[in-house]
Design a protein around this nucleic acid. Structure first.
Length: 223
DNA sequence: CACCAGGCAAGTA
DNA sequence: TACTTGCATGGT
């Protein structure tokens, strides 16, 4: 007999798909744009990030070399609408240096490396934590790693599928140990969780009933 | 006005 | 290991 949690995770995915359909994530035309977006969206509304990405694209600066070579203060000025602009300028610069050293500024070259080696290497970059690393790996580089974010944790704990307090790695393994390692499945599952979270699983005052058929029970406020 | 948004690192105990 | 704090803009 298969695991109960495994069946629930697969059922949740089916219901999300029925309710919302394909999400087409990550937003972005190129692998590099997705990686930059992953860094800029740290604790930040996507609309603010989109503004910066559009400005960079307009200026022809959405490219590894010019971004890496420009003065840090100028980069920070460009990132202003995305918030945390000083710290994000340094973090983006750190990633750009990594991309230069590791793959000669080429996301395509980076994508030729194995997940098992790439993930630890990305995590060593100052400013790239587990969620940012997994977002880059899954969406920009098409590697089968599951992305965990605040919505993932909130949704699973409200349905009593995961402890209120658990680590990033614990949640990541919860999915990866029970689902086949398919890139398109992981991409769509995470995007659907964010879609559900944005509309129905906000922090307490604006929390709503889960709209998925058969899933409202167990959906409770935390604490 | 307060609160939130697709985190992360550094400091403290 | 487990808290706490700083980082900052724009929308609701």
């Amino acid at each position: 007999m298969t695991n109960r949690l495994e069946n629930l995770l697969k059922d949740l995915y089916e219901k999300l798909w029925q309710a919302f359909g394909p999400q087409g994530w990550w937003p972005g035309d190129t692998a590099f744009e997705m990686a930059v977006g992953a860094i800029l969206t740290q604790n930040t509304n996507w609309a603010n990030v989109a503004r910066v990405l559009a400005d960079l694209k307009e200026a022809g600066l959405l490219d590894p070399r010019p971004l890496r070579e420009m003065p840090l203060a100028e980069l920070a000025r460009l990132l202003k609408p995305a918030g945390y602009y000083n710290i994000k300028a340094q973090r983006l610069r750190n990633f750009l240096d990594f991309l230069a050293d590791q793959a000669q500024d080429s996301m395509e070259a980076l994508a030729r490396e194995d997940l098992e080696g790439l993930r630890p290497a990305l995590l060593k970059v100052r400013g790239i934590g587990p969620e940012t690393a997994d977002s880059i790996l899954l969406y920009a580089l098409d590697k089968p790693t599951f992305v965990v974010d605040a919505y993932t944790h909130r949704i699973l704990s409200r349905h009593n599928l995961a402890p209120e307090h658990c680590s990033y790695e614990e949640l990541r393994r919860l999915f990866m140990d029970r689902l086949p390692p398919e890139v398109s499945l992981y991409q769509e599952y995470h995007a659907l969780l964010v879609r559900l979270g944005k509309e129905f699983c906000r922090p307490r005052p604006r929390c709503q009933v889960c709209p998925l058929e058969g899933w409202p029970e167990g959906w409770t406020y935390p604490g």
